[in-house]
Write a protein that binds this DNA or RNA. Structure first.
Lengths: 139, 139
DNA sequence: CCGGTGATTGCGAACCATTCTCAGATACTA
DNA sequence: TAGTATCTGAGAATGGTTCGCAATCACCGG
């Protein structure tokens, strides 16, 4: 189901601006920050404001339809929350973000929390690395 | 070896202000942010500025003697880098930060990066959970 | 001891991402 | 169609962090 349909399904209002932000996130293959989302939104609605972009993103995050990431720079990245959870590896050479899913890792995180007496609610993980193979400049 | 001695060992200057910041970090058992470190420094040097506190922290981080953490609020936390690496679990009920070391997790992170073709250089991990036992309000 | 050179400091201004304020525009309800 | 609540754009405000600058300090050769 598309992000905007899920917004409606949850009973939230879907203004033209929110719809636009939903569509941009649905189509995004990268992990854009608010400014990038705002710039993309602008191309289809020259009047949309950055504040409204932030407000739409907050609504989506509050509905748990979108998740945020912090990749070490000081900008919050946004991504549609999919059923298959994944974490990220950031290439320190090219800046590229690689998604990965590792069931063993997921299980281990829960296990560690449980061992400490906690029920895991969420987590943030980012791996930072450089290409290991022959060409360290490859992206 | 104390943090300030390590600074000297690396050939960096140790001004009274930097020395003070080093001592505060060495004694800290929590994960203070810059403002907290500044307030603690003030108690022994009423003239020290917040900017100098930030500058001293930057020197220590650049020397890889101190690491930073982001626990989801918008303040950077500082911690002396010890030989034994650990990650953190943040209690969403009390805000308490629990350190843990899990060799299996460390190995897995490296393995995942390697599988993707990367050499792991660093990572950031924070688990967020709530007490799993009888009393969900316990800290 | 003394001046020179470069690093460090305190202060306040500047920055940047994000949030807030507020008045006007919209949308649903009755 | 009026009433009420929500949303929007614009720009000001905020909070953590960094910068610019003049004053100060530390160390060196003489």
């Amino acid at each position: 189901m598309s992000l905007q349909n899920r917004v409606v399904a949850l009973g939230a209002k879907l203004s033209p601006q929110r719809k636009l932000v939903c569509q941009i996130l649905d189509r995004a293959t990268d992990h854009p920050d608010a400014e990038q989302i705002f710039q993309r939104a602008r191309k289809r609605d020259a009047k949309i404001s950055l504040a409204t972009t932030y407000r739409a993103l907050k609504v989506l995050v509050d509905l748990s339809l979108v998740v945020t990431h912090d990749f070490g720079d000081s900008r919050t990245r946004y991504e549609v929350k999919e059923d298959d959870h994944h974490d990220h590896l950031i290439c320190m050479t090219s800046g590229k973000v690689i998604e990965f899913n590792d069931p063993e890792l997921e299980a281990l995180k829960k296990k560690i929390a449980a061992r400490l007496g906690y029920a895991l609610e969420s987590h943030s993980l980012a791996l930072y690395g450089r290409p290991a193979s022959a060409d360290p400049r490859s992206s």
